[in-house]
């Protein structure tokens, strides 16, 4: 771990107040290059809100989000530009159903003039190869199984050459037999050094792949440790209770 490097993403006292719910309560955390951070916690604890505030998919009501040297929830920031560097993978894939797999992958890089169509196509083929879906390039999302869709969604995010990837429960909408193939791809990414923040219920994945595991409860970051410590010696009663339920 390159601990002396600067963080890629930094949350400072991050807060999200909905009219009746405090979804995120002064959460501070730094994600460094190459780290895999897993976020776990009970339903409604604010995991999604946290991850979605990091690319301003949800607008925080307080605190700061920094991408490298730039505070991104500040007036005058071109958030679309920042998001080009922060990929996101959704629970429900959100592939574009009217476009082929290849078009799904190449749309953003070409539209944003980061790549020519040929370059983007070449990248798409290479990435599809990597997730074992090269032959699906001309299929439409509706023709794919859930696990395949999620792998395509990961490729779509990767095609932007992001510096960090955010995942919000990427395997929760999948049939059990398809969870493995998606986790396998994510493990591959972790091994290749991709910086990732992953909200997940897959404790096995967190234990095996994460550098740090975060426990959230009632909008707060309650506990944070490397996986051996996190799972082996949980400190707070809430985490102990949570782990006793899910493990």
């Amino acid at each position: 771990m390159s601990n002396d490097a600067k963080p890629i993403l930094r949350a400072v006292e991050l807060t999200k107040q909905y009219p009746t719910v405090l979804a995120l309560d002064h959460v501070s955390y730094e994600i460094f290059p190459g780290q895999v951070v897993c976020v776990v916690g009970p339903s409604g604890s604010g995991k999604s809100t946290f991850i979605r505030c990091l690319n301003l998919m949800d607008e925080p009501t307080g605190g700061q989000v920094w991408f490298k040297d730039q505070q991104i929830n500040a007036p005058g920031v071109d958030i679309n530009r920042v998001r080009q560097h922060i990929g996101m993978v959704f629970q429900h894939f959100n592939l574009f159903p009217h476009l082929t797999v290849r078009k799904n992958i190449t749309l953003a890089p070409t539209l944003l003039k980061l790549k020519t169509q040929e370059e983007a196509d070449a990248t798409a083929d290479k990435l599809l190869e990597r997730v074992g879906l090269r032959e699906k390039a001309d299929a439409f999302p509706g023709q794919l199984a859930g696990g395949q869709k999620q792998r395509i969604a990961i490729v779509r995010a990767l095609a932007m050459d992001p510096q960090v990837l955010l995942f919000d429960e990427p395997t929760s909408a999948l049939d059990p037999e398809m969870v493995g193939e998606v986790l396998q791809v994510m493990k591959g990414l972790a091994k290749a050094g991709m910086t990732m923040a992953v909200v997940t219920h897959e404790m096995g994945f967190a234990r095996e792949v994460a550098n740090h595991v975060l426990f959230m409860d009632h909008g707060r970051l309650v506990e944070e440790n490397p996986p051996q410590e996190f799972f082996g010696h949980p400190q707070s009663p809430r985490l102990k209770e949570f782990l006793s339920k899910v493990l």
Partner: peptide, 15 residues
């Protein structure tokens, strides 16, 4: 059109 479609577009940096 599903809200996730807007989010997917936005997450890729599209305006």
């Amino acid at each position: 059109v599903d809200k996730g479609q807007y989010e997917a577009g936005a997450s890729l940096g599209l305006n």
